[in-house]
C-alpha cells in the first residue's frame, strides 16, 4: 500500500540556512513508520544528552529540552501529521517507560500545542521568524501550556507565579535549541540524509515541484 507523503515545506528566504523547497514523495507506509521510529528513538536518546552534558541552568524545573530539536527537524523535513505522531509517540513512550501516565497530561499538551504553533509560524510567518525564533515561541508555548495544566489540575492560580521564570528560561533554552537545530538542519541537508531516503526509493517516488 502506498500513501501520499509530503516531504519538505517552504521556508523563509530571509533565513538563508533553511531554503525554500517542496517535494512530494510517494513512500510506503512502513518506510514512513521507520522514519518516525528513528526520529522518536533519537529524540528520546538525545534527551539523555541532557543528563550527561552539564549545561548549567540554575532554575529548578528548567531543562534545555533537546528533544525539541527533533520536532524542529521534523517541521523542516516532514509533514505536520508525522511531526504530531513523533511528538505524541515520544510523550507516550517516555511516560510508559519512566515518568508515569500523569505526566503524559503535561508533556502531550505542551508538546502538541507547541508543535502546532511552530508549524503555523514556519508555514505562514517564516519571513519574520528564523528557526531560533520559532524554537523560542515553541518553548514559550510548551512551558506556558504545562504550567496552565498544572494550575488546572491543582485548581490553584498561585502556580502561575512561576510563569515569568519559565518564560525567561523558555527564551534562553528556545534560543539554544533553535541554534543547535539550525546547525543540525544545515548539516543534515549537507549530508542529504532526507533526500537520500527519497533517492533510495527511486522506484516508488513521484516528485512534484
Amino acid at each position: 500500500m502506498e500513501i501520499d507523503f509530503t516531504m519538505g515545506y517552504p521556508h523563509s528566504n530571509r533565513s538563508s540556512k533553511v531554503r525554500l523547497f517542496r517535494k512530494r514523495v510517494k513512500m510506503s507506509k512502513n518506510r514512513r513508520y521507520a522514519i518516525i521510529i528513528i526520529l522518536v528513538t533519537n529524540a528520546i536518546l538525545i534527551s539523555l544528552l541532557e543528563s550527561i552534558i552539564p549545561v548549567l541552568i540554575p532554575v529548578p524545573g528548567v531543562k534545555l529540552g533537546l528533544a525539541s530539536i527533533i520536532t524542529l527537524i521534523g517541521l523542516v523535513f516532514l509533514p505536520l501529521t508525522d511531526v504530531l505522531w513523533i511528538v505524541i509517540i515520544r510523550c507516550i513512550v517516555v511516560a510508559l517507560l519512566t515518568r508515569g501516565v500523569m505526566m503524559l497530561a503535561f508533556s502531550i499538551s505542551g508538546g502538541i500545542l507547541s508543535a502546532l504553533i511552530m508549524f503555523i509560524i514556519y508555514q505562514q510567518l517564516s519571513q519574520y521568524f528564523s528557526l531560533k525564533g520559532i524554537s523560542i515561541v515553541g518553548a514559550l508555548v510548551h512551558n506556558t501550556t504545562q504550567i496552565i495544566v498544572a494550575s488546572l489540575l491543582l485548581g490553584q492560580l498561585v502556580v502561575l507565579y512561576y510563569l515569568p521564570i519559565l518564560i525567561v528560561s523558555a527564551v534562553i533554552t528556545g534560543y539554544i535549541t533553535g541554534g543547535i537545530s539550525e546547525i543540525a538542519i544545515g548539516e543534515l541537508k549537507g549530508k542529504d540524509v532526507f533526500n537520500t531516503i527519497s533517492v533510495q526509493e527511486k522506484g516508488e517516488l513521484k516528485w512534484t515541484n
Binding site: 528513528i38 533519537n42 543547535i180 546547525i183 548539516e187 543534515l188 540524509v193 531516503i197
Partner: peptide, 17 residues
C-alpha cells in the same frame, strides 16, 4: 552537541532498511 545529534541521526538513518 549539534555534531553529536547529527552523527546520531545520520547513523540511525543508515539503519533505515
Amino acid at each position: 552537541i549539534s555534531r553529536i545529534i547529527v552523527s546520531s541521526l545520520v547513523n540511525s538513518f543508515h539503519k533505515l532498511d
